[in-house]
Design a protein around this nucleic acid. Sequence first.
DNA 1: TCAAAAGTGTTGTGTGTACACCCATGT
DNA 2: ACATGGGTGTACACACAACACTTTTGA
Lengths: 250, 250
Amino acid sequence: MKDKKTKKEKAYKYCSLDTIRMEISKKTYDVTKYDRPSVTVDLNIFTIQHNELHVLLVKRKAWPHKGKWALPGGFVHMDEDLEQAAVRELKEETGVKDVYLEQLYTFGNPKRDPRTRVISVAYYALIRSKGVTLKPSTDVVDVKWVPAYDLLQLAFDHNEILKYALQRLKWKLEYTTVAFQLLPKKFTLTQLQKVYEIVLNKKLDKRNFRKKINSLDLIKETNEYTEDVAHRPARLYMCKRKIGEIVEIL
Amino acid sequence: MKDKKTKKEKAYKYCSLDTIRMEISKKTYDVTKYDRPSVTVDLNIFTIQHNELHVLLVKRKAWPHKGKWALPGGFVHMDEDLEQAAVRELKEETGVKDVYLEQLYTFGNPKRDPRTRVISVAYYALIRSKGVTLKPSTDVVDVKWVPAYDLLQLAFDHNEILKYALQRLKWKLEYTTVAFQLLPKKFTLTQLQKVYEIVLNKKLDKRNFRKKINSLDLIKETNEYTEDVAHRPARLYMCKRKIGEIVEIL
DNA sequence: TCAAAAGTGTTGTGTGTACACCCATGT
DNA sequence: ACATGGGTGTACACACAACACTTTTGA
């Protein structure tokens, strides 16, 4: 082992600079000989508004699909991690920040973008839309929340991506603690139940839901109650767990 | 609507070729102005041999990580789908073909490859290793099956990728019908149970396992039995379902 | 006093788990 | 006859589903 290493070092020591350059170019040959695709990130950002699940869309300013609605996203820079790129693009294009992103899937159909070969790594996240101000960047004409189940014609293959994200979201809700990301820090049990009903798109039994949530040690009660409501005030709860933790919920 | 289209066509009709070229270059500006990363696929191919889970590895011929074991994989060509690339690389590097691949995750740490920025889309698959002949391509020194839980030092971030694949594999086995991919077309219930015990790495109760499998309508019995065994022959079964179908099994 | 949502238990049904013995074959 | 894995049933515990009435507040 040691002998070999010494030998190798020696070999390099007496090489001319050109030989070393050639050596390097040989070594990187397989990397540089191919054309490279572009890589983008696309983001599925969900929230709940008016008792409906919404997704964040941007209106495209430029060709291709100029004027169409699309998922926010953009090109990955050479020196940044994929998730970093996603966070950056989201902030740049929409003004939304501080979200916990999760990777969804990578879409690589060679024809999905007419400009060139573009491979897109899709991410998704859930946020509380209260207090978030959307500000379209110079790259897009507009940003808005759209009901996630509206069959809008999106740019590129973004309909497919969104469909996939919605599927994953349902699964995540049943098996992890992500639902709490859609709620304020302090929430009522009915609000929590609504989140499940909206995303899973089915009615749930109040008593069974509460029994289940209580049995899971997910939340702790506070001594605060909803105020100024025209009915009995509801106790507020807080989530005990880390976001995204895996727990079988429903 | 119709009016707009006519207008656009007219606009182009009277443009000089140069104007059109400029137009196109403006349109594609955002795509071409960035350096592009390379994109690879990496494959986690699993099988069962000698009552142990094995993963397919190749020994690297060239820098970087020359001589180290790595997951098979390689660069995605400009005109091929990601999964196509995975299938091609697998066949080229190892001789393995006809596998049902599933996408795992995309790894994009900027430093994961010392040559340049390389983003890797990881895939995984389960195969029956009986009858598969491994033949290393000219790109690699060797190909072999390695026990999946052996803590081998792999090239790049392949240890991390493999760990992730093993986790996903366990999940897949419990919630889908992938286990059958590790078995011959006709198999005994004990063989099926072994697959679960090996991958999940825990003993299962024979009677409960059979009861569960039978209740799920996954398999149909044949009238064939194992032959030449030094004990009571076992009935052979076949899978009724499509591979990868989602069914809660354990 | 009415409207509106909050909050609270019991019972039946089905599913998972633990557990031990006889059977068919080859040597 | 013995070693080896094949094949089968029951009892208990626990989780899930269905279901209705009282409480508290503001208007």
